Amino acid sequence: MAGAMRRHGCRRLLGTHLKDLLYTKHCVLFDCDGVIWNDEKAVVGAPEVVSLLKKHGKSVFFVTNNCTRPRDSYLHKFSRLGFSEIVQSDVLSSAYCSAVYLRDVAKVQDKVYVIGCDGVYTELHEAGVPVVGKEPDVPGATIYDCPLDSDVKAVLVGYDDKLNFLKLAKACCYLQDPDCLFLATDRDPWHPRPRGRVSPGTGSLVAALETAAGRKATVIGKPSRFMFECIASQFGVDPAHTVMVGDRLETDILFGWNCGVDTVLTLTGVSTLEQAQGYRDSPAPEEAACVPNYVVDTVADFLPALNEERKENPAN
């Protein structure tokens, strides 16, 4: 399969080929950042693409590793940027899926120590998962004298722009217990910021804690399969009739490979066509999984095929 992907990956998706692909797919998974919006600006044509897909009866889901906001906040952003008919069940963030994992898979009834932002805390709270970690530390407290909660049986690491040494040290102490679960929302190493700047991602925080604790985290978000399993279990989605559209090779495209779905790389975000072609031509077998089946400049490239199908089927 790897060889086939190398020979046929990175195929430009235009015209009839794009129309044929959309005809065979009943479910479309989109990443958000870099795919349908960049910061506070929708990618041109993205709201129309999502609307037309839904009008054509396609199931549309948004799978994002961005754990900084809860799902209801995502709904406000979708509305603010011109996307209509988006409901909460369409959105699966790594924060939400981490809460689902802790509640339904791990069935954690004790407390979870969280390194993360409000999006993680909100989703855990709404799932009924008891958490600690948001409480302000006593001024001047150190790992030598700060209190630790004996009821903590899991550590969850997400994006945290207020990370400090004491938070890492507390998590490391909890993880000395081999029965304490160690979870991460995602492994994204960095995130693009305006004016060409970047910020460390959750993956960099997880790597620090893995080094300190001598343990590996179970990752909930992409490229792990769990986000797709959440969709498949609730909505009966078939991988053979699903396509993943993303902008990051090592996250979105690898996620599609892991889930057995076709993948489309859009060039409005992190990864470039040259990087995708480099993976395709690389002799390293592990890089084959990061090669997209197809490439588009932008999700707006879907519009001609969707509009053509609408003309042929005016009842849609």
Rank of each mutant, 00 (worst) to 15 (best):
A99T: 08
S79E: 14
S150W: 00
Y159A: 11
T142Y: 03
F83D: 02
D149A: 04
A127K: 09
Y159M: 13
Y121L: 12
Y96L: 15
T122F: 04
V157T: 10
K111A: 09
S84P: 00
G140V: 05
V132I: 11
S79M: 06
L124C: 12
S79Y: 06
A141V: 10
D118G: 01
I143F: 10
S150C: 06
L92H: 12
G140C: 07
G128F: 05
Y96T: 03
A99W: 01
A106V: 14
A95W: 02
R80P: 00
A154N: 05
V112H: 10
P139Y: 12
D149W: 03
V105Y: 00
P139K: 11
C97L: 12
V138T: 14
Y159G: 01
C97A: 15
V152H: 01
R103G: 01
Q88N: 10
V129I: 15
S94N: 08
A154W: 06
V131W: 02
D104W: 01
F78N: 01
D137K: 07
V114E: 09
A95G: 15
C97W: 01
S94H: 09
V132S: 12
S94W: 05
T122S: 13
P147T: 12
Y159C: 09
K107G: 02
K107T: 08
L156A: 10
D160H: 05
P130I: 07
K107E: 13
E126K: 14
L81P: 03
E123V: 08
V105H: 03
L102H: 08
G133K: 08
K111M: 01
G133S: 11
F78Q: 01
S98A: 15
L148G: 02
P147M: 06
D104Y: 05
Y96H: 14
Q109H: 12
F83R: 02
K107N: 12
V152N: 01
D149I: 07
S150A: 14
F78L: 06
I115T: 02
V138D: 10
R80L: 13
G158S: 10
C97Y: 02
E85S: 15
V87N: 10
V155Q: 02
F83H: 06
A154Q: 07
L148C: 02
D151H: 12
D137N: 06
K111G: 00
G128N: 07
G82P: 08
V114F: 06
D104G: 01
A99S: 15
L81K: 07
A127H: 14
S79L: 12
K134F: 10
S98K: 04
D110G: 13
L124Q: 08
I143M: 11
H125D: 13
S98T: 09
V132L: 04
Q88R: 12
S84M: 05
S98M: 07
V132Q: 05
S98D: 05
L124M: 15
T142M: 05
V155D: 02
I143N: 03
P147E: 13
G128M: 06
V131R: 04
Y96V: 06
D90T: 05
D104H: 12
T122P: 00
L148P: 00
L102W: 07
V108E: 13
E126W: 08
K107I: 00
Y96A: 08
D110Q: 14
Y113S: 03
A141R: 08
